[in-house]
């Protein structure tokens, strides 16, 4: 409802949202593989870049939203590209290639997640024979991510109500600790809920 980190736009309607999620997933993976095997050519990236822009336009997901998201991840991409460059000690194209590949894949991943409802994504992954355990883990992450954000938010509010100053680092540290304990307690109760519904160590 109010938290929509990974599915903010996945509930709107557009031609891209209507594409079969399995197809989207396969396309996404094929682009990833292709980018890595074909030799570096700037034309390829101009082409893929324009296609991505068109898809974004059709999907009605604001371009600025996607750009902001990619910015967060940019530093990590840069570090990976650099390590790749140094470890291979080769020409600068390795640096460009890794960087551009990673950036494009992340942009596409954001597009994919924003135009596909998460449960549908899981179904597609299951269709592509991804192991059940991984799917269940992903389900849990999806389900409890929102709750974690909720709990963190509540704690920050209640701390802010009680103080007029900015929160001290120490307070924030303590809050993170409490959040950990709460999460641990919750995981125990979720496990009980699974037991009570017939879980015996194996997801069937």
């Amino acid at each position: 409802m109010k938290h929509s980190f990974f599915d903010k736009y996945s509930y709107i309607n557009s031609p891209v949202h209507k594409i079969n999620p399995v197809l989207k997933l396969i396309l996404f993976l094929s682009i990833g593989i292709l980018l890595n095997i074909i030799p570096f050519q700037i034309v390829t990236y101009i082409l893929i870049g324009s296609v991505t822009l068109v898809i974004t336009y059709l999907s009605k997901v604001p371009l600025i939203f996607i750009l902001k998201r990619t910015l967060v991840i940019l530093p990590f991409v840069f570090v990976i590209a650099l390590t790749n460059f140094f470890s291979k000690l080769s020409e600068s194209t390795v640096l460009y290639k890794t960087f551009l590949n990673a950036y494009i894949m992340i942009t596409l991943l954001i597009l994919l997640t924003q135009t596909t409802k998460f449960p549908e994504m899981l179904k597609s992954l299951s269709y592509l024979r991804v192991p059940k355990l991984i799917l269940v883990l992903l389900s849990f992450i999806y389900r409890y991510f929102f709750i974690l954000i909720d709990e963190a938010e509540k704690m920050i509010y209640s701390a802010k109500i009680r103080t007029y100053k900015r929160l001290k680092i120490r307070t924030i540290g303590a809050m993170i600790g409490v959040l950990f304990i709460k999460t641990y307690d919750r995981s125990e109760r979720v496990y009980w809920s699974m037991l009570l519904r017939g879980f015996d160590g194996k997801i069937k």
Partner: peptide, 8 residues
Amino acid sequence: DDQLFMPT
């Protein structure tokens, strides 16, 4: 929230 753990 303790009981419901699946995506849908």
